[in-house]
Design a protein around this nucleic acid. Structure first.
Lengths: 344, 344
DNA sequence: TGTTAGCACTCGATTATTGTGAGTGCTAAT
DNA sequence: ATTAGCACTCACAATAATCGAGTGCTAACA
C-alpha cells in the first residue's frame, strides 16, 4: 500500500493528534496544527480518500475521524522511526540500573518500575527462565519426612527450586547422597538425556535409593522444561487514567491478561521474525482479552540465547514512538547488566 | 448501646436488605418484607429514632435509609451469629482440599480460589511464614562466582531461600563445607544466638572461610526474621460486579491494597484480642485505601503458633454472616491439612 | 486539474423541562 | 402507642431545545 507524500503526512498528523487527545480529529483543527498551508476543504478531500482506503473511520457521520488499526500498523511500519532517547533520560535509566543490579530479583522489578514510569502504561517483565539452559548442579534438601526441596542450578548460575513429596522418607544424609549421585551423573550426561536405563546402571545404590532417583529425575526435568517463569507487572493503574479505560469491562480484561501469566509468558517469548521490538496492535493479538489493547515487547539475551522478555501494554492509540525507544534502550541495559550478573 | 427488641429487629432487616440490594430501604417495602405486622408509619418512627442514634442515614431527604458503619459494627457484634455451613458445602470444601494438599503452594492458591468463589469477594491468603520458627538446617548452594543460594529449613519442614552475592568466590566444595559448618553449629545453638564471637571460635576455618561465614549469618537471620511472606490474591474482578465499584477510583484503591503486600501482610497478622474471625469495617481500617472496604480475616496455626492468615475484602455492605461462616470452616480445614503436610 | 470558499446539513453532547414514584414528616383519628 | 391520610421532597427518566464542531457538495478560482 503506497500513499503519496501529502496523504502520508496528513495521516501522520492525525494519528499523532489522536494519540495525544483521544478525540476524533476534524479538518479545521488539523489545518491549523499541520503547517502545510492547505485548507480544511482540501484536507477533507484527502481524509475522504484515506477513509476509503481503510485508514480512518468516523465514529458517526459528521464527526472528526479516528485512525483504524490498519492506520496504526502503517504508521508503525512506514512512518515512525525509532528515536534515540534523550541523553538525560538515558543516563537516568543507566544510573537506576547500576543501583539495582546486585541481585536478579530486584533488577527485574526495577525494570518493570522504570518501564511503567517512563511510558505511563502497564509494564510486564518476564524473569530469566531456565528453559533451554543446561543444568550444572542439583541439590536435594531434606525438609521433613518424605518431603524435599529440589534446587536446580544452570550453567549460567540461575537457580530454580520446587518442593515435592516422595514415596519414602529422606533425611539429610540421604539427601546429600542423592545429590551427589545425580551431580556425578551430570558430569557426563545432560539432564534431559537421563533415562531410566542409565539410572539402573548406577552401581552404588540400594533398591530404595534407586527408586528415589527414578522419582526425582522427572521432577528435575520438569523444572527445567516448564516455563513457569515469574511475571512481574507494574503500573496497572496507569491505564485507568486514559479515557478509553473508564469502562469497567476494559479494566476487567486488563486484569485478566495480567493474571494469565502462562499466556502472557508464551505470547512474549514467541518470535516475530528477527524483530527486536515486536508490536501487536489490537486484534493482531491472538488472545481475546487483548483485542482492545496494543502490546509492545522485546527480549533480553545472554550469550545469544533468549532469557526473558519485557514489554508494555496500553491502548491501541499508544505512543508507539516513545515506547519503542524506551524498550530499545532498556533492552541494551538489561543485556549488559544480566551478563554482568550471571557470566564470569 | 442497647436497643429494644423491635428496633433491633428492624435494624437487622434493613441491614440484611441493604446488603442484598445496595438500595436505600424505605418503610413501605420494609413493612412487607418483615412480617412483624407493623405499619409503615410505625417503622418510619422507629427509623427516625435509629437515625438519631447514628445507625442509619438518608442519602437525601425523602429517600430510604442506608446503614452506617456503626450499624454494621452493631450487627456484627450484637445481632449476627456465625452459622455452621451447609453440610453439602462443607463436604465440597473438604474434598477440594483433599485434592490439593500434596504441596504447600497449591494448597494456598486453592484456598484463595475457594474463598473468592464461595464469597464472591476478593480473597487474600498469606502463605506460611518462617518467622518465629527455628532453623533446623541450612544449605548453601554455589551458583556462579561469588553468588550463592541460601536455603533455610525450619524445624517444621518449611523452606525459604534467597540469592546473595558474597565478597569471595564460592565453589561447590566450599559451599558444602560452609553448609556443614553452619549445620554443625545449629546442633547446639539456635540461629538467632549466633554471634560474631561464636563464629570466631570455630577451629577448622581458614580466614577467608571465616569471613564468608560472618557474611552469611546475617543473611540467614534476615530470612528468618523478615516477613516477606507471599501473598496470594484471587477474585479481584469479583468486586467489579457490585454497583459501588463501578467507580474507577474505588477499583484503583482496591488494586493498590492488593499490591501493597507488605501492608496487607502486617494488617492480617496483627492480633485483635483473642478473636478467631477479625472484622474491620470501613474506616476502622488504618490503611487509607481500605477506608471504603471491609475486610474479614482469620489465621491458621501449627502447634499453637500462628503460621499465616487469610481473608476476604469486600464492600462495607458485605455479607458478614456468610463470610464469617466460610472463614471459620476453612480455618479448620487449613489447620488440619497444614499439620498433615508439615508435622510428622 | 487541483485547490478553496461557501453553504446547507448532521448529529453527539449539553442543558432545560417535565413527569413519575418511592419515600418522608406531621397530624389527627383509632 | 399505633396507624391512616396527606402534603411535600427529590433522584431519576424521558423529552425537547440548543449548540457547535464537523461533514459533503458545488461552484469559483489559479
Amino acid at each position: 500500500m503506497e500513499l503519496n507524500v501529502r496523504k502520508k503526512k496528513i495521516l501522520e498528523v492525525i494519528i499523532r493528534d489522536y494519540i495525544n487527545t483521544a478525540e476524533p480529529v476534524g479538518s479545521r483543527t488539523l489545518s491549523k496544527r499541520c503547517n502545510l498551508g492547505i485548507s480544511p476543504a482540501t484536507i477533507r478531500n484527502e481524509m475522504a480518500d484515506l477513509e476509503e482506503l481503510g485508514f480512518l473511520v468516523q465514529p458517526h457521520t459528521s464527526s472528526g475521524r479516528i485512525p483504524t488499526q490498519q492506520a496504526y500498523r502503517y504508521y508503525v511500519d512506514e512512518i515512525m522511526e525509532i528515536q534515540k532517547l534523550e541523553k538525560m533520560i538515558r543516563t537516568d535509566i543507566h544510573r537506576g540500573f547500576l543501583d539495582h543490579n546486585t541481585e536478579l530479583g530486584p533488577t527485574m522489578s526495577h525494570t518493570a518500575q522504570v518501564l511503567s514510569q517512563l511510558t505511563n502504561y502497564t509494564a510486564v517483565v518476564l524473569a530469566p527462565r531456565v528453559t533451554n539452559f543446561n543444568c550444572k548442579h542439583v541439590q536435594i534438601v531434606s525438609l521433613i519426612k518424605n518431603r524435599v526441596l529440589m534446587v536446580v542450578v544452570t550453567q549460567e548460575g540461575m537457580a530454580k527450586n520446587i518442593e515435592v513429596t516422595l514415596s519414602q522418607e529422606v533425611d539429610t544424609i540421604l539427601a546429600l547422597k542423592l545429590s551427589n549421585v545425580i551431580n556425578g551423573f551430570l558430569k557426563n550426561t545432560i539432564l534431559s538425556e537421563m533415562s531410566s536405563d542409565l539410572i539402573d546402571q548406577i552401581q552404588e545404590l540400594s533398591p530404595a535409593e534407586s527408586k528415589l532417583i527414578h522419582e526425582i529425575i522427572p521432577h528435575l526435568k520438569k523444572v527445567l522444561m516448564e516455563d513457569a517463569s515469574e511475571v512481574h507487572s507494574t503500573g496497572l493503574t496507569n491505564l485507568f487514567n486514559y479515557p478509553e479505560f473508564s469502562d469497567v469491562n476494559k479494566i476487567k480484561q486488563l486484569i485478566n491478561i495480567v493474571q494469565e501469566k502462562q499466556v502472557l509468558s508464551e505470547m512474549m517469548t514467541s518470535k516475530d521474525g528477527n524483530r527486536i521490538i515486536r508490536i501487536k496492535i489490537g486484534s493482531e493479538n491472538d488472545n481475546e482479552n487483548l483485542k482492545d489493547f496494543s502490546i509492545i515487547t522485546s527480549t533480553y539475551e545472554l550469550d545469544g540465547e533468549m532469557m526473558g522478555a519485557f514489554g508494555v501494554i496500553g491502548p491501541t492509540r499508544m505512543n508507539y514512538d516513545n515506547v519503542s525507544s524506551v524498550l530499545n534502550y532498556i533492552r541494551n541495559e538489561l543485556n549488559l547488566h544480566i551478563s554482568n550478573l550471571l557470566m564470569k
